[in-house]
Design a protein around this nucleic acid. Structure first.
Lengths: 220, 220, 220, 220
DNA sequence: TATGAATGAGTGTTCATTCAT
DNA sequence: GATGAATGAACACTCATTCAT
């Protein structure tokens, strides 16, 4: 409720000249409000009040409310740091692969939940926005990273030869999104429930894709 | 200035005396528009125009736009017929169980896609609506039905003893929702892609949960 | 709050055929509501609900809300009985003349207060209505009656020769309206206050218009 | 379709930067329209058109139509200047007292007639408004001022000892309101008629309250 | 540059009225 | 005749946007 601390000590009159800070503050406020109340229910006045500036600034900086939404979206990612995780060394088993993936993804999605809620809610409803969603989501990158990992898993003999890698990767990605986003934000499940489920899912995933011999040796 | 020709075989004048049909038409139109454009972007005027009646009717029948949304929601289900499917005989294998489930669910979700888009999009954004979502979704019922099925699967020896039934059920339900809703309506995947993926997922599911011996005998 | 007992035992379906009773009930309800809430704030639905009939009846009987207002106005008076009072024998003094007049007028205005509030409130604001007010008010008739009385008062020597009769009549009429309408309904004064004031005014009136000699003989 | 020429020297475009003047203009226009057509029949659009601004300004400045009505009410008075009159030196006779009072009050009420019409009309019809009327009317103050004057009149021997001062004051106030407001605005009497009547009333008032001896000496 | 004043297109809703039954 | 269903014009009000300063 308190104005973002990024832009402190605001007084009346024409404000100080720190455009980058102001833009960031607006984006932050808009992200929060869009996520809480939805895009359309969020009024520009609310955003401006939250930040402590005039509505007109939204026009000046972002060209309007739509532009602000785009800026919010673009702000979503430090993709690189997020994706770096997928370049870690292989795990000892497919179940561990899944477990680590799910844990990481759940954490990551939770961190960017507000931002995602906006995106998803709007993509479902505004067809022209669906394209943007595809652009800004990391699904493809994660998919590629997993595929590459699983390739290596197969080479190590950890991953069964009889399962199609791309489907396996897709499968794990979907599980991650479901556990990290759908369960908590649509179904309202608590983190503990989700974590428990993630463990079970990882186990099942392991059973499904692990090479039989490898599996045996591992599980013992 | 000339009376709109957009709504033919409907004179400018007023009266038609079929209230139930009119209500249904309004709900149908609202469902379509809410799904296409979102709740807030859909104006009562659009709905009325689409149906060829006056806006006031929305007030008369449903008490306003909010009431119409509720009516749309309530109209969503012939739950019983949908759930009847889960009372069919067991399949010959767990993979088949999954395959049939996914096929059915994908078809079912596709059929009520517009209705679901509204619900999901709004539940993500309007917290007070999330409760309503929980009420009107069939997740719990399907979950219960699957649990009961898998219980019986285990008794037949088809389902491995070492997997927790509730997690398996949850898993399959999630796959269904993901393939039937997230893939086509959020990610924009085509039906063919989804169907292919469903086959792969069913296969993986089978591998994960099928009792080893049973699995062997089956696969041969 | 209970539906007027004039139209008892109403059930649904096309109602019984007692048009005069129904008209009277509508006029009564409209009078009450117009007076309580004003003409514009009173909705036809309220009137119909109060009476227990359909709104359409207002159209059928009176041609609309305006027509109902006119009917309400026309219903205002059993003029003759009201005016009969002014044909009573002369009083013994001018003060008594005033006292009796004021008492009677206060009572009369109180009885038709709702009806008058509508009239006055609307006449003040709708110029085209001011004419109607002139028509339906009894001011002229009362004025004429008083003038005639005061003529006779003068002949008896009770009324001073040095006052203009028409002004005296006008004066008394105004006092009556002020005490009977303005004080209670605009200023919110209680009946007791008004009665006390009426006595004082009558006394002052007497002092102002009574013939000096007569006054002496009377007061003794 | 062509820009209205009704509001000249005012381009279709927007901006004028004189908020106080704009507020005053809106209040003035609202006063006039409320008085002409009544509060409810006056539409915000009319007011805005009259002033040549947008309807939204009424919301911005006054918070809506209700707020504008309150502003109209509050704008009614430069009370002090109005009440100063009652601090003038005493007249030479009670008749003169009345004559001067009536003349002044008639003028004063005429000046604020539109404003008063709104107030009175609405107070008669909206009970919750009657309280506001009581607050903003000057009746009490004038009454107090007259009472104080008449006290002094009595000390000079001008005012008869046998009349109750408060009733006399009330009486004169009522006459003033009746002549200045009811006669012209409800009965539609012309100024000349009112003036004539005022003279007569003053004369009668004098006869009623003047001390007998003083009266004699004065009239001669 | 940043603002507050001002806008106008558009909102859901109201309500006296009309008409088929 | 009397009704409920249906209307459409109008309403106060909202809000992203524009512009003079």
């Amino acid at each position: 409720m308190t104005p973002a601390t990024t832009v402190p000590n605001r007084r009346s009159g024409p404000r100080r000249r720190d455009r980058p800070a102001m833009e960031a503050a607006l984006i932050e406020a808009a992200t929060a409000l869009f996520a809480e109340r939805g895009y359309e229910s969020t009024k520009t006045r609310m955003i401006a009040e939250r930040v402590g500036c005039s509505e007109a600034l939204i026009q000046n900086y972002f060209g309007g409310k739509d532009g602000l939404l785009l800026a919010v979206m673009r702000s979503g990612g430090e993709w690189e740091t997020y994706l770096a995780f997928f370049r870690r060394p292989l795990c000892a088993s497919m179940e561990e692969e899944a477990a680590e993936h799910l844990t990481y993804v759940i954490k990551g999605l939770t961190a960017r939940a507000p931002y995602l809620r906006i995106l998803v809610s709007r993509a479902l409803v505004d067809p022209s926005f669906q394209a943007s969603y595809g652009e800004y989501t990391l699904r493809k990158q994660v998919l590629a990273a997993l595929t590459e990992r699983f390739d290596r898993c197969r080479q190590t003999g950890m991953l069964s030869d009889s399962v199609p890698i791309s489907a396996v990767a897709e499968w794990l990605v979907d599980m991650g999104f479901h556990l990290g986003f759908i369960h908590p934000h649509l179904l309202g499940h608590k983190p503990a429930q989700v974590t428990g489920l993630a463990r079970d899912f990882a186990r099942l995933f392991g059973r499904a894709v692990q090479h039989d011999d490898y599996q045996t040796s591992k599980e013992k």
